[in-house]
Simulated assay, not measured.
Amino acid sequence: MASAPQLPLFYNGLEPLSSETHANYRVRPQDTAPYLVGQHAIPVTVDEFPLVQRHMPIVFSIGDDAIPLALMGLNEGTNVFVDDAGKLTESAFYVPAYIRRYPYMLARLRPDAEELSLCFDPTSETIGAFDDGELLFENGQPSELTKQILGFNETFEQAGQRTQQFMRELRELDLLMDGEVTIQMDGNDQPFVYRGFQMVNEEKLAGLRGDQLRKMSQSGMLPLLYAHLFSLSLMRDIFAKQAQRGQAPQPQLQPAL
Rank of each mutant, 00 (worst) to 15 (best):
D112K: 12
P103R: 02
S117L: 01
P142H: 02
R171E: 12
L71S: 06
A92W: 00
D189Q: 13
I149N: 07
L135W: 00
V52R: 07
L106F: 01
N201E: 10
T21D: 15
S124H: 07
F120W: 08
D132A: 10
L145F: 02
D83P: 03
L150R: 10
L175D: 10
E202V: 03
G140I: 01
D178R: 13
L69H: 02
G140S: 07
L229G: 09
M185E: 15
L136N: 08
V80E: 13
S217R: 12
L9G: 09
D47C: 00
C119D: 10
T123F: 02
P251R: 05
L88G: 09
T146G: 08
T182C: 06
R162I: 02
P103T: 03
Q30A: 10
A240H: 05
V82E: 12
L253N: 14
P122M: 06
P34R: 04
M221V: 11
D31L: 06
T45A: 12
V37A: 05
G210E: 15
V181S: 11
E76K: 14
G210W: 00
V59I: 14
L71V: 05
S124D: 13
L14I: 13
E172D: 14
P50K: 00
Y226E: 08
E180S: 09
G63H: 02
Q252A: 15
L36H: 03
R162H: 10
F152N: 11
K147E: 10
Q244V: 07
Y11D: 11
V181W: 00
D64G: 08
G13M: 05
F166C: 09
N79L: 06
M185H: 13
L232R: 07
Y25G: 07
G160A: 09
L208K: 08
D178K: 14
K241M: 15
D178L: 11
R54L: 12
A256G: 03
Y226K: 12
M199V: 11
K147M: 08
S143K: 03
F93H: 07
Q148W: 00
Q212M: 04
Q254C: 11
M167C: 13
Q252V: 01
H22T: 04
E154N: 11
L7P: 05
R195T: 15
G246F: 01
A227C: 11
L213E: 04
R214W: 01
G77K: 09
F197P: 06
V59G: 04
L74T: 04
